[in-house]
Design a protein around this nucleic acid. Sequence first.
DNA 1: AATTGATTGTAAATAGATTCACAAACAGGG
DNA 2: CCCTGTTTGTGAATCTATTTACAATCAATT
Lengths: 209, 209
Amino acid sequence: MTTNSGVPEVVVDRLPQYLRALSQLESSGIDVISSQQLGELLQVTPAQIRKDLSYFGRFGKQGRGYSISHLLGRLRNILGLDQTWNVAVIGVGRLGRSIISYPGFQPEGFRVVCAFDSDSGVVGQVAGGLTVYDFADYAEVAKRENVQIAIVAVPANVAQAVIDDLVAAGVKSILNYAPKSALTPADVRIRNVDPVVSLQSMTYYLSAR
Amino acid sequence: MTTNSGVPEVVVDRLPQYLRALSQLESSGIDVISSQQLGELLQVTPAQIRKDLSYFGRFGKQGRGYSISHLLGRLRNILGLDQTWNVAVIGVGRLGRSIISYPGFQPEGFRVVCAFDSDSGVVGQVAGGLTVYDFADYAEVAKRENVQIAIVAVPANVAQAVIDDLVAAGVKSILNYAPKSALTPADVRIRNVDPVVSLQSMTYYLSAR
DNA sequence: AATTGATTGTAAATAGATTCACAAACAGGG
DNA sequence: CCCTGTTTGTGAATCTATTTACAATCAATT
Ligand SMILES: NC(=O)c1ccc[n+]([C@@H]2O[C@H](COP(=O)([O-])OP(=O)(O)OC[C@H]3O[C@@H](n4cnc5c(N)ncnc54)[C@H](O)[C@@H]3O)[C@@H](O)[C@H]2O)c1
Ligand SMILES: NC(=O)c1ccc[n+]([C@@H]2O[C@H](COP(=O)([O-])OP(=O)(O)OC[C@H]3O[C@@H](n4cnc5c(N)ncnc54)[C@H](O)[C@@H]3O)[C@@H](O)[C@H]2O)c1
């Protein structure tokens, strides 16, 4: 699947891995790395790293390798991470609250700017410093707050309906925590975070066969 | 990558999706489905579903489709989900606690049977009904409790060390929540749950290009 | 300034995954 | 009991991804 321009989706999905490894290398003081070394670190062949990067340009130097800070900058730019992204959380229950106060998003440029629920007992409350809006007002609030990404943390049985509403409101990227694989139009990107699915594929290999 | 027997890893990774969709169909009272219909529901081609299933046997009937309850049984068996799996959680901080009390594991046959931390302020506490053990005693306790799967919820900077210890103790399946891609031997399966990585690949498509 | 050793970027080859396409099988009429 | 309309299971074809292999390039050294 290339889906968009000429870059295969698998390649785009590997870039954040490279980014993370390079970040760590940078903060440990190293400033040049070869595809060989990076590959060892990530369990990926050096050729794959070079080929992946070659979709976007020529970032290395023959005989030396890649300047980590330079490559980091380029990867951030390619992935659109040289800007801040505004995120909305839908569903302010146990999970929604922990997402709102998860400190891992902010440093990576993702800012939770508003939260929504449909329960009148929750709407109007303050959670993690954010006032909870009525999900019925999503389109209006999201526009005002300039939201580009929605995180869905509602019960599975309403997930599809919520996602339909989000799509109708123009959202193009959704991170879905509900254990439900939801349907979206081809131009809307959805990623599922589901630990049970991950466990279920590992047990295949654990089972005697 | 086939990694083990003749079944490609991508195929195994799709089975839990099929399982989940079929479960929902079953509870909504339907009892037969064609690859065509299931494919529409999951945004997958019917041929792919049929080919995936054909790695494991012949579960359908020409002219009719698949008996949902029968196929569910077969998929559960193939994935090793007709047994209960004992899980250990490593790192009893904010995340570790929510994992321990997450109600989504139990119904799918994953039981969190013990929890570990290295902080003496946490060891001995009770969290979600479980006494927290010292991670130094992992091998012993895990053996006694018959643990087959470990969930890692420790800070990124200690994740590799913790995972090395788990591997040394004989763990073959790890679900890692730390934002760190860790190295493991080829016979140890690791899956990462990382919402930031998912977001970072979506922003690629959001960015003007 | 030539030589060495390392490493990139990529074209071509290989391997792997998906889709096509159709014979075989089955249920439900008539 | 024989059509008719479906839908499976799967070999072959196609498409996609990965790996190989090497010329081009660069820094360091003599
Ligand atoms: N993927 C994961 O790691 C993970 C972890 C925990 C929970 N979950 C899932 O996340 C979801 C939420 O879990 P939770 O424990 O927070 O549940 P919860 O019941 O505590 O919270 C759900 C919230 O969604 C709200 N809600 C319901 N319908 C809504 C609608 N139509 N619009 C807006 N808000 C609505 C409810 O009012 C409630 O506040 C569940 O689907 C659960 O299975 C996933
Ligand atoms: N993937 C996700 O969705 C997600 C969400 C939240 C947090 N996280 C990550 O999960 C990890 C934990 O987050 P948290 O908020 O619970 O942090 P936390 O600080 O609250 O908890 C971490 C716990 O790990 C324990 N620990 C430290 N070193 C240990 C060791 N060597 N052995 C055993 N236990 C040890 C600490 O004592 C602490 O109790 C972090 O890496 C965080 O980035 C991931």
